[in-house]
Design a protein around this nucleic acid. Structure first.
Lengths: 156, 156
DNA sequence: CAGATTTCCATGCGTTTGCATGTATCGCCG
DNA sequence: CGGCGATACATGCAAACGCATGGAAATCTG
């Protein structure tokens, strides 16, 4: 049996994940504290951002939920708040009447752009000095690969 | 001016961060849902884990706060809950009477080990199939480098 | 060394979150 | 077609969170 080899590969995976997780915490901590997020919390901005990247402009609530680390009910209320503030609009899905489609309003798009500009600069000032261009490219490749593998997996 | 070069390096940093962030969300989502965290939430386990890795056994509350993505007040109450459950003990710091030292109880250490075992297996089953050993090693190197650079920065 | 400033942790308070559940719709299978 | 489990979103409620603040101790300053 390759018990030792398994042990060590298990440990390596755990250490890899811890490094990734701690790096995310360290960066996120700085980003959250930045003035860009004084008016809109990070979670809410993330929704605006995802909507802004959506080609059709409309996105289903359940698809949105896959991108965000939030429960379904929390996302439901988060979107409710965004709608009250006039940043997004809801609409019943035409093909599935249980579903809800979301779209940015003009103001929502403007707010996203405004915050996004500052946010991107903040990111750059954190990541840029830390890693070379080649390292960033490689990090992106590895994290993309990880996310695709994890996301594609049969949940249960 | 190298405006174009700056533009593209800014964009690359943003894309790198987004990949890292989404990968973290995807993995964390699976890990949170695992049965290992039915009794103790991830945030609380993270505190137990950090304490278990502490050489002296004792750790200051403010140092702990650097590792976790939580406000100071939330961490204060989180620790309060852990103490009520008998998993940690508090003690005034001897050299700085404002400070509070934390240590795992025997039960806390046992709980951490128990959950930790399952958690490490969950991580391995997610990360192992996704990345080769060499890729994991490289990912760890890059995220360590990123975290060190970000953490070492003058906070404000 | 007195007074002002900063650091560390705790706490009041309003907001946000997750779990459990409710309601409506969809899709499947007999 | 009719009944039944699965899916999508909303909502009641208790728990957890962040912000602002308080009090105590350390540190800085003149």
């Amino acid at each position: 049996m390759a018990a030792n080899a398994n042990e060590s590969s298990v440990r390596m995976a755990a250490e890899t994940w811890e490094s990734l997780f701690r790096a995310q915490v360290a960066v996120m901590r700085k980003l959250q504290a930045a003035p860009a997020f004084r008016t809109v919390p990070v979670n809410e901005y993330d929704v605006l951002f995802t909507l802004s990247r959506c080609p059709s402009g409309w996105l289903r609530l359940n698809e949105l939920n896959d991108h965000v680390l939030l429960s379904q009910s929390s996302l439901s209320r988060l979107v409710e708040r965004l709608e009250k503030r006039g940043l997004v609009v809801r609409m019943p899905a035409p093909d599935d009447r249980r579903g809800v489609l979301l779209k940015l309003t003009e103001e929502g798009a403007a707010v996203q752009k405004e915050i996004g500009r500052a946010h991107v600069r903040d990111i750059s000032s954190l990541v840029g000095p830390a890693l070379t261009a080649a390292e960033q490219k490689e990090l992106q490749r590895l994290t993309d690969k990880l996310r695709n593998s994890v996301g594609a997996r049969p949940g249960k």
